[in-house]
């Protein structure tokens, strides 16, 4: 009897009643956490119908691309009974924002990269002499010698540049700026155009001077100040411009054709030989004309012409002290008889 009274007393206490009334399931049990990958939701209008989600899906027939005739949309449809909620389709979806949406997932996104890098170092297989100096120079062991090749582990590399300083061959280890590749392409395009125009103008000037010998090596300098001002409007970082220019000038070899109309006898041998149709015969004036914009600089006209009208020069470049040094060498191609 006394125990029953004690129980009644215990149950009647306010604290016990409050706890009994306010009892709730823990939210962790009842609610689905945000990280949970539920069945992906489809946002129809974003789909580009690339089919990447279908290829990534491990469950047969869980995703199908459906064409809606009325709305003229193609979009993925997920069969809930077959979907295994792996979320691979969401990972591979290339649209921005994603067509398929699921819980917050653990993709390695760009902003989560451990080392934010703007430079990547790559060993050039062709130029490398396998001296292994870079392997010794690397302080963190990102470079290894494997299968007779220098391999740089990009996940370890911290872009310090010690390997480039240690490398005895210029260009065997390349420093590539990865953040603005399109802008670099534009710089390369403009500098090659500028250089060619400059050479053509300079050579026209030189030929007018007395004592011009076409067999001799021609040297000229291209001042970079003007170009740098233009380049800064494309990429504000001067270091990137200089390194891009250096890569260009180290590699670039340009064929230059100089058309000397005085020597031309209008034999029209070159007209049919030109693969681009850049050389034409003007019947009214009775003259052979060359369109430099169409020209490929293939040197066929140079080899065909019996009078030496098209002179072919090979230009090479070197970047030094904010100038590009240009060397023009007359070509030694055989001239057809």
């Amino acid at each position: 009897m006394s125990s029953a009274i004690w129980y009644l007393y215990e149950i009647a206490r306010k604290k016990w009643v409050d706890r009994f009334v306010e009892a709730k399931t823990e939210p962790e049990i009842a609610e689905i956490p945000s990280r949970f990958r539920d069945f992906p939701e489809v946002q129809k209008e974003l789909c580009i119908s690339c089919g990447a989600c279908i290829f990534s899906c491990p469950s047969p027939g869980a995703i199908k691309l459906v064409r809606d005739e009325e709305e003229e949309l193609i979009f993925p449809v997920i069969d809930v009974t077959k979907c295994i909620r792996c979320g691979f389709c969401v990972e591979v979806c290339p649209t921005e924002p994603k067509t398929l949406v699921t819980g917050e997932n653990y993709l390695i996104m760009e902003e989560y990269q451990i080392l934010p890098k703007e430079k990547v170092y790559i060993a050039d297989e062709y130029l490398c002499i396998k001296c292994k100096k870079c392997v010794e120079a690397c302080n963190i062991g990102a470079i290894s010698f494997h299968n007779n090749m220098i391999v740089i582990d990009q996940s370890k590399c911290v872009s310090c540049g010690d390997c480039i300083n240690a490398c005895p061959v210029k260009g065997a280890i390349k420093e590539i700026f990865i953040l603005n590749i399109d802008e670099q392409k534009e710089i390369i395009k403009t500098i090659t155009k500028d250089l060619e125009n400059y050479i053509n103008v300079e050579i026209e000037k030189m030929r007018k001077e007395p004592g011009f010998d076409p067999e001799k090596i021609i040297k000229m300098e291209y001042p970079l100040e003007e170009f740098m001002e233009m380049g800064r409007s494309i990429i504000p970082n001067e270091e990137i411009i200089i390194s891009t220019l250096e890569k260009v000038t180290d590699r670039l070899k340009m064929n230059i054709i100089i058309w000397d109309e005085k020597l031309c006898n209008n034999c029209r041998l070159c007209v049919n030989e030109c693969p681009m149709g850049a050389i034409s015969y003007d019947e009214e004036q009775g003259k052979v004309r060359r369109d430099p914009r169409e020209c490929l600089r293939c040197s066929i006209c140079h080899q065909t012409c019996p009078f030496g009208v098209p002179e072919l020069y090979v230009a090479r470049f070197l970047l030094k002290d904010e100038k590009i040094l240009i060397t023009l060498k007359p070509s030694r191609l055989l001239i057809r008889d």
Partner: peptide
């Protein structure tokens, strides 16, 4: 589960399952 509803990942060519 997906298996009971559609055969899931077991429902492939050459498999002898009679899902769903």
């Amino acid at each position: 589960g997906a298996c009971a509803l559609s055969g899931g990942i077991f429902q492939q060519e050459g498999d002898k399952v009679s899902a769903p």
